[in-house]
Amino acid sequence: MSRKVRAVLFDLDGTLIDSAPDLAGAANALRAEHGLAAMPYEQLRPMVGAGARGMVGVAFGVAPGEPRFEGLRDAFLARYEQGMLDRTCLFDGMHGLLGALESAGLGWGIVTNKATRFAVPVAEGLGLSPRAGALICGDTTPHAKPHPEPLWEAARRLGHAPADCVYVGDDLRDVQAGRAAGMATLVAAWGYLGAGDSIDTWGADAIINRPEALLNWLKLA
């Protein structure tokens, strides 16, 4: 690390929290309503980072712009909203990591493409809201990731320059947004990672395999 980091920004799903069980459950519940068999969790998990678009795509083979997409998306989101804290939890090691950042005097926040309708209740339910210095959702600013504006807004709310922040995420869009915002970027290799190119090709500053490894990268451990 060649810069002084004063704040750490995290993606939410697949980075801070493991929401895949509830999102996959909503997808399979909707499949059941359509008379389809449940899909294996292993097939659904990688697409969680792509939100409703990804989940409807993998569960029904329907893409945005196709006639069935909007109805399936809205039905999927309604089912997810009914149980979005049933099994969702922080990833192992994340409680300790956040505590270590706070003890070191580093601010931290959340930047997610998840809509406020879902992100705020989840963050509150998991006890993240009182601690996070910023919670930027997919509809907080006019643009969502990979546009840098959500990350700039988080930096503003934390009172730091973008260059003094690092962004940690598990999707290519996270790296693209972080680089465009002028932040160091780290890939959370424990996350969902999508179904595209290898994370080694994303152009991040580093790949970390577990939450505690961030402390080593920050030279706090």
Rank of each mutant, 00 (worst) to 15 (best):
D197K: 12
A115N: 13
E153S: 14
D11P: 02
V166W: 01
M55F: 04
A189K: 08
E33N: 04
Q176F: 11
W108V: 03
K145D: 09
G109S: 03
P64Y: 10
F60L: 00
A27C: 10
N113I: 08
A213W: 05
G127P: 05
L16C: 08
D86L: 14
V166R: 03
M55K: 01
L215V: 09
M39Q: 12
L135R: 00
D13E: 14
D11Q: 11
A7V: 14
R210T: 14
D139F: 04
R45F: 11
V122N: 02
D171R: 08
V120I: 15
E153Y: 12
H34A: 07
P142E: 06
A213C: 12
M39G: 06
R131V: 11
R73C: 01
A213H: 06
L220S: 04
H95I: 13
D11F: 05
G127Y: 08
S2T: 15
A119D: 08
W202A: 03
E149L: 15
H34P: 01
A134M: 06
G191H: 09
A155V: 09
L9T: 03
G61Q: 03
G51T: 03
D170V: 08
L30C: 06
G71A: 15
W108G: 00
D197W: 10
A188G: 02
P67Y: 05
G133W: 02
P150F: 04
E149K: 04
A163N: 12
G107W: 02
K114Y: 02
A38P: 11
A24M: 11
W202E: 06
D92M: 09
L106S: 04
I110S: 02
W190E: 06
P67G: 09
G54C: 02
F91Y: 15
L172E: 11
I17L: 03
A221R: 15
I207E: 04
A32N: 10
G191R: 01
L30W: 00
V122H: 03
L220E: 10
L172Q: 12
L77E: 00
L36G: 06
H160E: 14
M84I: 13
G54I: 00
L172R: 07
G14V: 09
R87G: 03
A163H: 10
T15K: 01
Y167P: 05
D22F: 03
G35H: 05
G194C: 09
H147W: 02
R210I: 08
Q82P: 02
E66L: 01
T201F: 08
L214V: 12
Q176G: 09
D74Y: 01
S129N: 10
A104S: 11
K4C: 14
V62K: 00
A189D: 15
H95A: 12
M183C: 10
I17A: 04
D205F: 12
Y41D: 14
S129P: 10
I17W: 00
D139N: 12
A189E: 13
M1F: 15
M183R: 06
